[in-house]
């Protein structure tokens, strides 16, 4: 609401967002992290066996991406360099993110720090963390 969204939408989606944000702004207990959005945009989801994090970071050399897991906090950091504007050229629209970035996600308690894999495809970093074996639901047979 107070910041320009990284992924602006078309008019109808924008009206829908406005409605939701109005609802959120009348909520007496908003999130401590506010409504800000950063780069890369993150989607988080999970299955009973995994926690899946998708970071939308197009045009980055995966070797320069720094993904760290410390005490249940997953950090995705890096730098996005974009081609400089040549001399005697005019920049008409300037919306793409450039520069250093860092985003942190706190993982659920049952995430296993030893079973984590990261893939970069089509500009999306997908981090998959397995949930711990002991946290899996088990059926107990009744004697």
């Amino acid at each position: 609401m107070y910041y320009r969204s990284l992924f602006p939408r078309d008019l109808f989606a924008e009206l829908d967002r406005l409605q939701r944000e109005l609802q959120q702004s009348v909520d007496p207990n908003p999130s401590i992290r506010g409504l800000t959005r950063g780069f890369p945009a993150l989607n988080v989801g999970g299955t009973p066996k995994t926690v899946d994090i998708y970071a939308f970071a197009p045009g980055i050399d995966p070797a320069t991406l720094d993904v760290q897991l410390v005490k249940g906090m997953l950090t995705i950091a890096g730098e996005r360099k974009i081609d400089p504007v040549p001399e005697k050229a005019t920049l008409h629209i300037d919306e793409r993110f450039a520069g250093r970035f860092r985003r942190v996600v706190s993982l659920p308690d049952d995430a296993d720090p030893n079973a984590i894999e990261a893939k970069y495809k089509d500009g999306v970093l997908h981090v998959r963390i397995q949930r711990k074996e002991e946290a899996q639901p088990r059926r107990i047979t009744i004697q």
């Binding site: 078309d10 989606a13 974009i82 005697k88 005019t90 008409h92 793409r96």
Partner: peptide, 13 residues
């Protein structure tokens, strides 16, 4: 409904 991708537009000669 669709997202608008962030865009840069640069014009030269």
């Amino acid at each position: 409904a669709a997202l608008l991708p962030p865009t840069d537009v640069i014009e030269d000669a």
